[in-house]
Every structure is written in C-alpha cells, then in structure tokens.
Simulated scan of single mutants.
Amino acid sequence: MSEQPLVPTPPVPTGVDGQEWANNLSEPSNYGGEAADRSREELVPGPDGAVLARFREILLQTDELDWADKTLAGLSHKALWRNEETEASISLIRFRKGAGIPLRHSHASNQFMFCLSGRYTYVPTGLTLTPGSFYWNPKGSLHGPTLAEEESVLLEIYDGPHYPTQPDWYTDPADAH
C-alpha cells in the first residue's frame, strides 16, 4: 500500500455508540489536499492497484496552513481538497496587489469563486469581486485577463479539471491543478 499518512482514530464522542463510531468512515476515495492529508484513517485497495482512503468529518483551520507559491508571480494557494479521479478541487487562492492572470482563457469545468477579501477585477468586462461576491465562470467561457487591485483572497472551487491544456503562464504542470 501507498505511504500516505494516516491519523489515529479519534476517541469516541460522548453519546455516540462505539460500534457506530468504529464503522463511521467514508466510502473509499482518492482525495488530496490539506484536508485529506491530515485526516486519512484507513487505507484500502482500490481498482487497478490504486490505494484509496477512508475519512471522517474534517475540520481544517486554514489560518494554520502556509501559502504555497505558484510559478505565476504574485499568486499563491492553500489546496484544501481535491478529488484525484475527477480533478474537482477547493482551494484558497491569494493574488498580491498588481498580480493576475495575464491572458484570456477558459476552463475545462465550472469555476466558482467567493471573494473573502480584496478587489479582483476581470479587466475586459470590468467585473470586480469584492468581499462577499460570488463569481461563476461556466465551463468553456472565455474570461480574463485579471488584475488584483489590492491583495485578494478567494475561495475557488472547480467541479472538474481546471484547464483543457496547461496555460503558458505556469511553468510547473502542478500549478494548473
């Protein structure tokens, strides 16, 4: 089996049956990201030799996570969750003031963003995300370039793969996930 990290089974909560607690794990799944990496309790064999994991409910304190820089200057992220089979994902992304995505592009799935802080603008259309804004970019819709008018933090969700091909602005293929 894979060397994926496992966490110890948490103690049985008061008022919960011990047998229920022992069996209260998710279906086997192939999840990645900080939430999964901090909460795998059991590894099980999957199809074609894949190693799958089982999980419980998960609480992640995002302020305890470090920002990971991407190869596009001024962009960093905290990868919270990813379904490795469908490539759906949830991340916090941060654009430093003046940074942004340099070219018009489309995505291979729906992109959803919720602005937590800052001002993040889609230059051609003038759409500006401010705290509390929800943005949906439907699969295949061209958008961008973008500009962070001030440091901006966004919750970004994809319901499948990010890009049909790796964008030129990333030199590391992992940045396109």
Rank of each mutant, 00 (worst) to 15 (best):
N24K: 15
Q166A: 02
E20H: 14
G18I: 02
L43G: 12
L65E: 00
A73R: 12
E151I: 00
Y158D: 01
Y135T: 09
D69V: 15
G74R: 01
G15M: 10
P28M: 02
L116F: 00
G32C: 12
E42T: 08
T62H: 01
F95Q: 02
L60E: 00
D172E: 15
A88R: 00
Q111H: 14
N30R: 13
S91K: 15
F55G: 15
R54C: 10
P161E: 13
S109Q: 08
D48P: 07
V51N: 08
P167V: 00
G15F: 07
Y135K: 14
P13Y: 11
Y122P: 07
A88W: 11
S141V: 06
P173R: 07
L80H: 12
E150G: 05
V51S: 14
A79F: 03
M1K: 15
V123Q: 08
Q111W: 03
H107Y: 06
E57R: 14
E3L: 11
Y158M: 04
R119S: 03
S106R: 10
E42K: 13
K70Y: 14
P138N: 10
I93S: 04
T14H: 15
L43P: 07
S152M: 03
E156P: 07
T14C: 13
A35L: 08
S152R: 06
G144R: 05
H105D: 01
P8I: 08
S91C: 14
S106P: 14
L129S: 04
E156W: 11
V123D: 06
E85P: 07
L155V: 14
P124D: 06
P11C: 12
G49V: 14
R104W: 12
E20V: 15
V51C: 06
A108F: 03
Q166I: 06
G33F: 01
E20T: 12
G160D: 11
N24Q: 12
T125F: 02
M1E: 04
I101Y: 11
F95H: 05
H143Q: 11
R38F: 06
H77D: 06
G126W: 04
F112M: 12
D66E: 04
T130E: 03
S39K: 02
L59W: 13
V44M: 03
D17T: 07
S39G: 06
A68V: 10
